[in-house]
């Protein structure tokens, strides 16, 4: 049994240590906001924060997450930055199908936690691993700037 710290809660998880964090979250803990898109760190749909750093949960074994603090979309609103990102996303109606957006929001939150005024180039770099098949990229950029303004 491995104990994970997820969104501030310590939760025992009954899986093999090499099970990807993604499936422990989704299937074992039923935290289904984190999405599966590729399973090989190509799309970013599964992005969560591990000790504040964005990681791909599909390629992070549960054992590597034990001992760290995991934040998922379900807990993103626990910080002012996460809240501001969600609010900007809603204000600009960024989402289309929505399937990639948990990952986008996690990556955007991680970016703004360390850089309160990112340029377009910095956004493109930080979000470069998050694919959006609906191509909501124009609004993702705009919403990050909007959240940055709200936090200033």
């Amino acid at each position: 049994m491995i104990t994970l710290d997820i969104n501030g809660q310590r939760i025992p998880v009954d899986t093999d240590p090499d099970t990807p964090l993604l499936w422990a979250l989704r299937d074992t803990l039923r935290l289904t906001g984190t999405k599966y898109g590729c399973g090989m760190a190509q799309c970013g749909a599964c992005t969560v924060l591990l000790d504040g750093q964005p990681v791909r949960a599909c390629s992070t074994p549960v054992s590597a997450a034990a001992g760290g603090k995991v934040r998922t979309i379900e807990g993103v609103d626990r910080t002012p930055v996460g809240l501001a990102v969600q609010a900007a996303w809603e204000r600009l109606d960024v989402v289309q199908c929505g399937y990639c957006q948990s990952g986008q929001i996690m990556s955007a939150t991680a970016l703004l936690e360390r850089n309160r005024a990112p340029t377009d180039a910095e956004i493109d770099e930080a979000l470069g691993g998050n694919l959006c098949r609906c191509a909501t990229y124009v609004r993702i950029r705009a919403a990050i700037h909007e959240a940055a303004r709200a936090l200033a």
């Binding site: 989704r26 299937d27 039923r30 935290l31 289904t32 906001g33 984190t34 999405k35 599966y36 998922t72 979309i73 379900e74 609103d77 969600q86 996303w89 809603e90 109606d93 960024v94 989402v95 929505g98 399937y99 957006q101 948990s102 929001i105």
Partner: peptide, 21 residues
């Protein structure tokens, strides 16, 4: 007018087929 699905989709609460248990 704002989209009706934004709130669910920015909070991870929107339910897709993949999320059914």
């Amino acid at each position: 007018v704002p989209r009706k699905d934004s709130a669910e989709k920015v909070s991870g609460k929107a339910v897709f087929t993949q999320d059914i248990h």
